[in-house]
Amino acid sequence: MNHEQIQECIEAHALGALDEPERAEVATHVAGCEDCRAVLDQYENVAATLPAALSIAAPVPPSDVARRRIRRGIRNRAMRSRVATSVAVAAVILLGIAIAWVWRSERTLADERERSEQLIEEQEIVFEVVDSPDAERVVLRAESEDSNSYGKVFTRPDLPFVVAMVGRLPEAGEGHDYHVWVTFEDGTTVLAGSLVPNVDGFASLVYAADSDGPVVIGAQVTVEPSGVTRPEGEVVLSSDTA
C-alpha cells in the first residue's frame, strides 16, 4: 500500500478493526511516517474516549470488590518480591561463606599436605643418613651441667645431607628459637636451621649441603632471638670440636 492507501485505513486501525496482513502493513508504515502517526494519534484519542462515553451513557454501580482484590494482589506481589529479595541476599551471603570456607579448607588441606610430604621426605632422609653403616657422627653435649640435653649430627659420604637430632631440650621461650650451626672442614659455619622440640624435647632437622659427603668438624645449638643470622646467643649444646 502507498501512503494514500495507508491513510484510508488509519480510522479502522485506530479501532483495531483491520484484518491481517493489512494491520501489520499499516503499523509498520505508521511507525516510520510522522504525518500518519499524527493522524493516528487523533483517531486513537477518539477510540480511547469511547469507553468513557459508554460509562456516562449507562453508568454501572460502583463496587469495591475489585479494588480490595487488586490491593491484596499488589501487596502479595510486593511481599513475595521482598521475600524473594531477602532469600536471594541470604543465598548470596551463604554462597560467599561456603566458597570462603571451601577455599580456606582447601588451602589448609594443601598446606597440611605440603607439610606432611615435607616431613615424610625428611624422615626418609633422616633414616637413610642415620641408618647407614658409613654414617659419620658428631656428638653434641650440654654446655650447662644442670642440663641433660644431648644431640648428634650425622652425615654420609654419598649424600649431601646433614642431619641434626637433639633430645630433652626445654622450650626455647617466647620470641626465641633453637638454631643449629654447623662448621665444615673448610672452616665455614652455616645456620643449618631451627629446631622446634616436641613435648618430649626431641627435634630434628635436615640441611642440604652443596655437595655429597660434607665433612662436619663442629656443631652448636644456640638459643637465639627469632630471625638472627649469626650465632650470638647462648650455646645450649656443642660438639667437642666446635
Binding site: P51, L54, S55, A58, V60, P62, S63, A66, R69, I70
Partner: peptide, 25 residues
C-alpha cells in the same frame, strides 16, 4: 469506572469485577 462499565455491558455485571482485577493487575 469506564473499564467496569465496558465489562458490565459486554460480559455482564457479574463479570465486571473479574475484568477490572485482570486488567489493572
Amino acid at each position: 469506572p469506564w473499564v467496569r462499565s465496558w465489562a458490565a455491558h459486554t460480559l455482564g455485571v457479574d463479570q465486571a469485577d473479574d475484568v477490572l482485577q485482570v486488567v489493572f493487575m
